[in-house]
Computed example of a mutant assay.
Amino acid sequence: MTGWNDTGPDHPLPPVFPSLALCLGGALCWGVAMAMCAYISLLTHDRLPSFHLRQLLVIYFAGGTVAWPILLPMARFLSRRRGIEARFAAHFALLSVGTVAITALAFALDYRLFYAQWHEPFGTVVWAFQFAFTTAGAVYQFLVIGLGLYLPVGLPVLAGASLWLARSMSPSMR
Rank of each mutant, 00 (worst) to 15 (best):
F92N: 01
A89L: 13
F77E: 15
Q130M: 00
R76A: 12
P73C: 03
F133G: 09
R112V: 12
A86K: 00
Y115Q: 04
L71Y: 08
R80T: 05
F61T: 03
A108Y: 10
A128F: 15
E85M: 14
A67S: 15
A108F: 09
R80A: 05
H91A: 12
F122N: 01
F129V: 15
E120Y: 12
H119T: 10
Y111C: 08
G123D: 05
T65A: 15
I84P: 09
A93G: 09
A106Q: 13
P73D: 09
A104M: 01
A106T: 10
W118D: 09
V97D: 05
V97T: 03
E85H: 14
A116E: 12
A67G: 08
E120F: 11
F122I: 04
L95M: 12
A90C: 11
A89W: 11
T124S: 07
F61C: 08
L113F: 14
A93F: 06
G98A: 06
M74R: 08
A86E: 07
W127D: 07
T99M: 05
R76Y: 04
R80G: 01
W118Y: 12
G64R: 00
F131T: 15
A89E: 10
G98E: 02
L109R: 06
I102K: 03
S79R: 03
F77V: 03
T124P: 00
A132I: 14
